[in-house]
Design a protein around this nucleic acid. Structure first.
Length: 421
DNA sequence: TATTGAATAT
DNA sequence: GATATTCAAT
């Protein structure tokens, strides 16, 4: 059984008797098992499959923590029952205790076997011990004093995954916009938590959510821009084969297929492994040498070899652009159109036609005037090629850059004796 | 007066 | 970066 021992140190907190909050948490998944997204070189180290780890079983209500894997939410769509069970079938409860002897929050695991919360206890112990030796107190900060009326600083509440999960569930239940600290506190039913604790956590939660929504909008904008591209670029000039013939012209820029923007799933925020939860949530355990489940099925036209070559096969300077962030709209749900790959993709063989050194071309740039049909054909070629996940950190091309790129490649690959009409 | 949310402190 | 505290607005 899991307990959170909170020791009395303030007046205003609801420190009561030990109360069973009666929700069960999962065990068996360790913090160190989580895929490590902390890497300084994303392009070199990203495993794109890992970006979509373990989302195939997500549910609407508690999507952001289902990646813990060992949580089994009964019922799927509706999980308000708070019936969480461990992988082994045992149940665990969370307690919040109070004590007047010393100031600490302790998470203990009295259940059988090891669990992520056992590790949580260790983390908490370290944290408490590290800060207890020389407590830093704002002595002369006036109103901003960190001391309470007894002169002791309140203990930090450690928002463990379980606690956060509960929090998210309640917020979801109330509605993100209608969730206020007092209601959250009431519905969470965790004794020892204060409204201030909730408010603080809620503030952070909203902040993260706001950030995510901004990125969501950006992704939508990007998708919209792609639709403009696929509509054709009006240029005049050259023969179609100059563009459609891959020996002459193979666009190196890929465009993502139009991403379906399904309903917004509101709580895929802050806590999702693809976000910045590198330290907080337990890692999901995958067997060595195994690849985690991939959310999106690979497009039929995209052989697996393409997938494997992606991260390291792109030479510097290869045009590519940033996929939208893993958001509610691009993981979890299948493409709206069967066979249509997700939008965080790029063309599989996009780099194949890029010469390592620019080829001499007899045609001055202004001789290259591809027709609309040619451009459309090139774009069609782009759009019909397999798509693969795109490395993070690069921006999508502007419309102008697309034209310039088409232009550049046309120039570079026009055979010497080609006549432009 | 209690609550909330943002700003600020630790 | 996470959490606590303060404070103005309601």
């Amino acid at each position: 059984m899991l307990s959170v021992a909170r020791l009395r140190n303030t007046k205003d907190e609801r420190l009561g008797d030990e109360i069973e909050s009666s929700f069960f948490i999962g065990g068996g998944s360790g913090i160190n098992d989580f895929p490590d997204f902390c890497t300084d070189n994303l392009l070199d180290n990203i495993d794109f499959d890992d970006l979509f780890v373990g989302m195939e079983n997500e549910v609407d209500v508690l999507p952001d923590l289902d990646i813990l894997g060992d949580f089994s939410v009964s019922g799927g769509e509706e999980s308000e029952s708070l019936n969480y069970t461990t992988a082994s079938g045992s149940s665990e409860n969370i307690h919040v205790k109070e004590s007047s002897s010393k100031e600490e929050i302790k998470v203990s695991d009295s259940g059988s076997g090891t669990s992520s919360l056992t590790q949580g206890e260790e983390i908490l112990s370290k944290r408490d011990s590290s800060k207890s030796s020389t407590p830093k107190v704002a002595a002369d900060k006036g109103k901003k004093s960190s001391k309470n009326q007894q002169g002791k600083r309140k203990v930090k509440v450690d928002w463990t995954p379980e606690l956060h999960r509960r929090f998210v569930q309640v917020v979801e239940q109330l509605g993100v916009d209608k969730a206020v600290p007092s209601r959250i506190l009431e519905l969470m039913g965790i004794d020892g938590l204060t409204r201030h604790n909730i408010a603080s956590h809620l503030q952070k939660y909203r902040s993260h959510r706001k950030h995510l929504l901004a990125r969501e909008a950006e992704a939508a904008s990007w998708s919209q821009r792609r639709q403009i591209y696929s509509g054709g670029v009006a240029l005049k000039g050259c023969k179609r084969e100059m563009i459609s013939n891959p020996n002459w012209f193979t666009p190196t820029i890929g465009f993502p297929p139009v991403a379906p923007m399904p309903h917004f799933r509101p709580l895929h925020v802050w806590g999702h492994p693809s976000m910045d939860q590198r330290h907080i949530w337990p890692k999901q355990n995958f067997p060595p040498n195994s690849r985690p489940p991939v959310l999106w099925p690979a497009p039929a036209a995209s052989p697996s070899s393409h997938r494997q070559q992606v991260p390291n096969s792109m030479p510097h300077g290869t045009p590519c652009f940033q996929p939208p962030p893993p958001t509610p709209t691009n993981f979890g749900a299948p493409p709206a159109v069967p066979g249509l790959p997700p939008h965080a993709m790029y063309k599989a063989d996009a780099t194949a036609a890029v010469p390592s050194t620019p080829q001499a071309c007899p045609h001055p740039p202004f001789d290259f005037h591809p027709s609309k049909e040619s451009i459309d054909a090139a774009l069609e070629d782009v759009l019909t090629k397999p798509w693969l996940p795109l490395p993070l950190g690069l921006k999508p091309p502007s419309t102008d850059s697309v034209v310039v790129e088409l232009h550049r490649q046309g120039i570079e690959k026009i055979p010497p004796n080609t006549s432009c009409g």
